[in-house]
């Protein structure tokens, strides 16, 4: 009997170590980003640079190189826009960094885009081709504005989100593509968003990410901007 207890104890310890070794905590990331915006009318937009995000500090830093060198710091409830180490624009905002794709990915919550964490519930799941599509219950008061949120998974990764409005008219589609896998961390290399206006014209927005680096502890200053600088 004592031997069996020892065996169980040994098995639990080994299992515990094994679980600990595979569940690495990814707490910060940096990446080169490119944002391309093509509206229905008017000028287009191209922004390039590097993003830095630390999920514990919840400080999102856009180090922009094009159109011009500037930094956007999204910190607590403020956004600061900085050129030549001086703030040229400040605005009070709610703390929203935890809703970003960076925070969701670092917390392994990207699969359902955080909807499950926001207490939405699934009403139906179906398989179509290689997609697993889940339909989410919409709180009653917004059913007039948003009729459906459908999330498609492919190979157990977030593939796309479709949001519809009145009469199931599609308002917005988002596609998450070209996943980069680093250990247990995965992040979309590109996010394509298509917005539809009342005349069904399409507006495009593409965000591309590359050179993703995780848990960089040698360049602490990149992840925490000291505003007094």
């Amino acid at each position: 009997m004592r031997n069996i207890l020892y065996l169980i104890l040994l098995f639990s310890v080994v299992l515990g170590f094994n679980r600990h070794s595979t569940a690495q905590d990814y707490f910060r990331m940096s990446a080169d980003f490119t944002t391309k915006v093509k509206p229905v009318e008017g000028k287009m937009n191209l922004t390039k640079g590097k993003i830095y995000y630390d999920k514990y500090a919840q400080e999102l830093i856009y180090d922009i190189s094009f159109p011009s060198k500037e930094k956007w710091i999204v910190q607590d409830s403020k956004i600061y826009k900085i050129t030549n180490d001086s703030v040229f624009f400040t605005e009070e905002i709610p703390s929203m960094n935890e809703f970003t794709v960076f925070h969701l990915a670092l917390n392994s919550n990207l699969t359902y885009f955080g909807l499950d964490e926001a207490k939405f519930s699934i009403s139906n799941i179906e398989k179509k081709g290689d997609l697993v599509i889940s339909y989410w219950n919409i709180p009653p008061h917004i059913q007039k504005m948003i009729s459906t949120i459908a999330i498609a998974k492919k190979n157990n990764q977030l593939h796309s989100i479709v949001i519809t409005g009145e009469n199931n008219k599609i308002l917005n589609k988002q596609f998450f593509k070209d996943y980069v896998q680093i250990g247990g961390f995965e992040f979309p290399g590109s996010i394509v968003q298509i917005f539809y206006d009342e005349n069904n014209n399409e507006e495009y927005q593409v965000m591309e990410f590359k050179n993703i680096e995780l848990n960089d502890i040698e360049n602490e200053e990149n992840y925490h901007y000291q505003l007094e600088n």
């Binding site: 009403s123 009653p140 596609f175």
Partner: peptide
């Protein structure tokens, strides 16, 4: 009870562009 949504199903093509 009132949080339920009317059942809707999309064709696979909706999830592409």
């Amino acid at each position: 009870a009132s949080t339920t949504t009317a059942a809707v199903e999309f064709d696979e093509s909706v999830f592409s562009y």
